[in-house]
Design a binder for these strands. Structure first.
Length: 423
RNA sequence: GGAGGGGUGGCAGAGCGGUUGAAUGCGGCGGUCUUGAAAACCGUUGUCCGUUUCGCGGACCGGGGGUUCGAAUCCCUCCCCCUCCGCCA
């Protein structure tokens, strides 16, 4: 959410930013509603001030045994007017709020301007390009031979997009999750948490899954809960409605969660195997930081997510997302894409984002700053560290051997309990 | 699922229709005292909003609604926490 002040003072700046994000928002409508809202509020405040004053007088009069019936009759009229104004104000506030929730965060000045993924900027690459090899297999062929997963059975249980990991595949998945959590806790000063996998509407509003992405989520209607599409939701909401002290920042959390996404409208688009799923596993990093540090923290967060890939020897590249490809809530994001030699394509395994105060404002996540202890919104950031399915694709395809086995990178071996996945 | 008890400022904890935005204690900040510190004492200390911005006013005591001239206080509803019973990995 943007501050109403910013919209009031720099409407053209806000318009330009939302347009660059390929969102259409009626800023003028909000400004008009805001003007109307303040007019009513001023009027209402004056009437309430009068009521407060007279009510006090009535109290005093009654105490001293005087008759106040006439004054009370007058106040009944005023009270009715106040009630009417209050209800108008409530309606207006709700309309403004609902419009504000639909304004995207504005892109940071360093974000490349563009309309879609073609305009993303490649920031850096890591790892060696492998030699062209006609015998190279994709992850489905490798996995089938090693019996790592069974998509047919998964589909029979829950539908397509819900994978069943079997035997060594299940163990490898577990190994990856444990390895990544330990990695971030040991090397990057994160606090581990294990969050709920469902969340309330309010929590989804904080992180901005609602209203824009509501249809992308699974909903448990009976209990008014949503299945989380990412651990970002519970992690960010750990501090909702809080005023923290300056000393406790920055706060870093790491968590594993299953992630659930309906992926409505994306059928048929890169959906085979592990490329796009309705349920997948992810290790997520979330930071709460002071505003002046947030862009430096974004760089660090990205480096921390990269470190996982380097430690596993997976080739990757980093993109700075252009304005049009940035998510609704993000001011700046880096995508980490791993190279899958079997698929012959780059696969996104992480997006590291700075949301500035956008989520903090929605979730009222604040802190007391400086010597005057002024209350300010924190900046929130998050990034995957990383999602397992596409990492698994890259891992299997990168480390496949001619005999069909897969050698595991060294750091993963103790977690898996062997140095290779054998037939 | 059934029966009770609660949700008040950074924390603890009073208030249960009329100078109560809220006693008191702890914590925080400023000061006195001290070589310095502690102790003691004095002062100060919530958030948000409007405005004619060294000022004035309004809202907020879990969320929402209602009663009333007036609500932290009464009523309704939702959420959360605790205790007991039941069920359960």
């Amino acid at each position: 959410m943007l501050s109403m002040n910013l919209i009031r003072e720099k409407p053209d700046f806000v318009k330009a930013g939302t347009e660059n994000k390929q969102e259409t928002v009626d800023i003028d409508q909000i400004i008009n509603l805001d003007l109307e809202q303040r007019k009513i509020l001023t009027d209402l405040n004056e009437k309430r001030a009068l009521r407060n004053k007279v009510s006090e007088e009535i109290g005093l009069a009654k105490k001293s045994g005087k008759d106040a019936d006439k004054t009370i009759a007058k106040m009944q009229k005023l009270s009715a007017t106040i009630k009417k104004l209050e209800s108008e104000l409530t309606t207006l506030d709700a309309r403004i709020e609902s419009l504000l929730l639909r304004i995207p965060n504005l892109p940071h000045e360093s974000v490349p301007i563009g309309t879609g993924s073609d305009h993303n900027a490649i920031i850096r690459k890591w790892g060696e390009k492998s030699k062209p090899d006609l015998t190279i297999k994709n992850h489905l062929e490798i996995g089938e031979k090693l019996a790592l997963f069974d998509f047919k059975k998964g589909a029979a249980i829950a539908g397509s997009g819900f994978p069943l990991y079997t035997g060594k595949g299940a163990k490898l998945e577990r190994a990856l999750i444990n390895y990544m959590i330990d990695f971030h806790v040991q090397n990057h000063d994160y606090t581990e948490v294990f969050p709920p996998f469902v969340a309330r509407r309010d929590a989804m509003l904080t992180t901005a899954q609602i209203p824009k992405l509501e249809d992308d989520m699974y909903q448990v209607e009976k209990d008014e809960l949503y299945l989380i599409p990412t651990a970002e939701v519970p992690l960010t909401n750990i501090h909702q409605n809080e005023i923290m002290t300056e000393e406790c920042l920055p706060l870093n959390y790491v968590a594993y969660s299953a992630c659930f996404r309906r992926e409505a409208g994306s059928y048929g688009k890169d959906t085979h195997g592990f490329i796009r799923l309705h349920q997948f596993n992810k290790v997520e990093l979330v930071k709460f930081v002071e505003p002046e540090n947030s862009y430096q923290e974004l760089e660090e967060l990205t480096v921390q997510a990269e470190a996982i890939l380097q430690s596993l020897g997976i080739r990757y590249r980093i993109l700075s997302l252009c304005t049009g490809d940035l998510s609704f809530a993000s001011a700046k994001s880096y995508d980490l894409e791993v190279w899958a030699p079997g698929e012959q394509q780059w696969l996104e395994v992480s997006t590291c984002s700075n949301f500035e105060s956008f989520q903090a404002r929605r979730g009222k996540i604040r802190y007391r700053k400086g010597s005057d202890k002024k209350v300010e919104f924190v900046h929130t950031l998050n990034g995957s560290g990383v999602a397992t399915p596409r990492l698994l694709v890259a891992l299997l395809e990168t480390y496949q051997q001619p005999d069909g086995s897969v050698i595991l990178p060294e750091p993963l071996q103790p977690y898996y309990g062997a140095d290779k996945i054998d037939l």
